[in-house]
């Protein structure tokens, strides 16, 4: 029983990371119908910058802030310079563009910081079962999800974002500066992706550190429904817990396979995600 509780708590903590990355994917997909394959690279660049800033200042939190800012800038810049010019291109173009960006950024990180693992600090004490660091991961992601809900539901900025995503032209006719709003959505989403990177990085950072996390995050985003931020959070936590059980009861060598099984099962049974409502959006 104790083992089960430990596995659940550990699963929730790592699930928080998948949830954050899945959330960033879903926010971008909702806003611009683009699956941003460069998201783990944004998180990677952000985490390496955090490493550099922390090394220079001696403050973990200065690095943390730098990571979120870098994530936001990368997101907004990518929307503006790469995605917006492709708005009228084929649906394949943004996929190829973000995949290309993923490789460029991963390569650049390797060139600047090398491929040797760098030791990366935890935000808080990481010892013990459900450590303060684990609690921080879970709490920060839940807080972000709650803040997002409030933003979308109750603020003018959230209303603009929803309108710009649903019907850009009608939004413009109500005075919404759609371009700026969508860049803002990318910035916000990518800052959340950078948070995921900060949580996923310790204890060691390498240019490929987030590859597995990204696969789990995609599984979570698809399982939760690509258009559903709450599905992303719930999906991320569920994937984390499930993989933790698989690791604990079956063996760590089967975790990746288990993620794949989850993904395929959901796609076969409920292709719009577990939490999809019956009515599809009309464009």
């Amino acid at each position: 029983m104790q083992h089960f509780a430990d596995l659940t708590l550990n699963g929730l903590a790592s699930g928080a990371v998948y949830a954050a990355l899945a959330l960033s994917l879903v926010l971008i997909y909702q806003a611009t119908r683009v699956l941003n394959f460069a998201q783990p690279a944004f998180a990677l660049v952000s985490a390496y910058l955090a490493y550099a800033v922390t090394a220079a200042t001696g403050s973990y939190w200065a690095g943390f802030a730098a990571a979120l800012a870098a994530g936001g800038l990368l997101g907004a810049g990518t929307e503006r310079l790469l995605i917006r010019p492709l708005r009228n291109a084929s649906p394949l173009s943004p996929i190829i563009a973000t995949l290309g960006l993923l490789m460029v950024l991963q390569g650049a990180v390797g060139m600047v910081w090398g491929n040797e693992p760098l030791s990366f600090a935890y935000p808080l004490d990481y010892r013990g079962r459900f450590s303060p660091a684990d609690a921080f991961a879970l709490a920060s992601v839940l807080l972000v999800a709650l803040a997002l809900f409030a933003l979308y539901r109750f603020t003018p900025a959230g209303l603009r974002m929803r309108a710009a995503a649903i019907r850009p032209e009608a939004a413009r006719l109500s005075g919404v500066r759609v371009g700026a709003v969508l860049a803002g959505a990318w910035a916000l989403a990518s800052a959340i992706g950078a948070l995921a990177g900060m949580l996923a990085a310790p204890p060691f950072l390498t240019p490929n550190a987030f590859d597995a996390v990204f696969v789990f995050a995609i599984a979570a985003a698809v399982a939760g429904g690509l258009e559903n931020p709450f599905g992303a959070v719930a999906g991320g936590l569920a994937v984390g817990v499930l993989l933790s059980y698989v690791t604990g009861y079956v063996g760590p060598e089967l975790t990746a396979l288990a993620a794949l099984v989850v993904l395929l099962t959901v796609l076969a049974l409920k292709p719009d995600g577990l939490f999809s409502r019956a009515a599809a959006r009309k464009v």
């Binding site: 929803r162 309108a163 019907r167 032209e169 009309k282």
Partner: peptide, 10 residues
């Protein structure tokens, strides 16, 4: 616009 451009999701 034609049809009103109402956002039916809101």
């Amino acid at each position: 616009p034609e049809g009103g451009g109402v956002l039916t999701e809101l």
